[in-house]
């Protein structure tokens, strides 16, 4: 297939065969303005980004450049000031379970057990499944994140890292089309962070959900992503550069670190950030 035609068209006919669009998420001329007493503050302007199906994209940029704003606009939690965002061609009008979110803080309901927290979403997305089926789904994903013994533990009884595991299970269990991750491991120590990256990428390998993840960590960005999107500093932030990471999947940390291109990619990102 000719990749050039695929990337630009929504859907197309080729040799009499209908190929559905490969674009999952489409951000067109996106703009975000916050009115302030001193006049409008433009956070994002002319931001264009297309994310393909089954793609893992990490977004990197300086603090306060508007990464989180962009992500919460995709999630539908923050209104759009200009341009548009569409998921499979349908414009985003508000939040919904087709876009799962993993927040920076685990945001578990502290009065619920790990299982109840995951079930909260599962019940909502699979209302016609039997109770047992729904519990099985929740348990499956808790098992996947390595929380077999903690189904009935209260969220407050879990460590920060374990809480974020529940957050990952909750997001995957609702079978979203797009997974949005807002620096999900930013608050964890580096050991736990590595563990959770492995868990995340393992589930993602299985489910192949389109993922958009914000991170501050250059190594994390390279290890997880198919493409690293670099954002310019605000105000009026937009996409500054995009770097394709051509490592084979499934990846291991070791193979990535030993790969000859690793330091080339790393240097590229650091040069951009230091500029």
């Amino acid at each position: 297939m000719n990749s050039a035609t695929i990337d630009t068209k929504d859907s197309y006919l080729e040799n009499g065969i209908y190929y559905p669009s490969k674009v999952m998420l489409d951000l067109k001329d996106l703009k975000k303005v916050y009115p302030t007493p001193k006049g409008d503050y433009v956070v994002l302007e002319n931001l264009n980004l297309q994310i393909m199906k089954e793609e893992f994209v990490t977004i990197i940029g300086h603090s306060g450049c508007g990464k989180t704003t962009m992500l919460s606009m995709i999630a539908g939690l923050n209104p759009i000031s200009g341009g548009n965002i569409s998921v499979l061609g349908n414009p985003v009008k508000g939040p919904g379970p087709d876009r799962g979110v993993i927040f920076q803080s685990p945001s578990l309901m502290p009065w619920m057990t790990a299982l109840q927290n995951v079930l909260l979403g599962v019940n909502q997305v699979f209302p016609h499944a039997t109770k047992k089926q729904r519990i099985d789904i929740a348990k499956y994903y808790l098992h996947k994140v390595g929380l077999d013994g903690a189904f009935n533990k209260k969220a407050t009884e879990l460590s920060q890292g374990m809480q974020q595991r529940v957050g990952i299970a909750r997001a995957f269990a609702i079978k979203p089309k797009v997974l949005l991750l807002d620096e999900p491991f930013g608050m964890l120590d580096s050991l736990t962070r590595g563990e959770l990256q492995d868990i995340l990428i393992e589930i993602w390998n299985k489910e192949k959900i389109t993922a958009v993840m914000i991170t501050h960590d250059v190594d994390e960005a390279i290890f997880l992503a198919d493409r690293v999107v670099m954002m310019t500093s605000g105000p009026k932030a937009k996409i500054g550069d995009v770097l394709n990471i051509d490592f084979e999947r499934p990846r291991t940390r070791k193979s990535v670190l030993e790969h000859q291109d690793y330091y080339k990619y790393r240097k590229h990102l650091i040069d951009f950030l230091e500029h």
């Binding site: 999630a75 539908g76 939040p95 379970p97 799962g100 979110v101 927040f103 945001s107 909260l120 909502q124």
Partner: peptide, 13 residues
Amino acid sequence: DKDYINVAKVLKL
């Protein structure tokens, strides 16, 4: 907590 409300919104409760 705003986080809980956001979770509720994302899950469309």
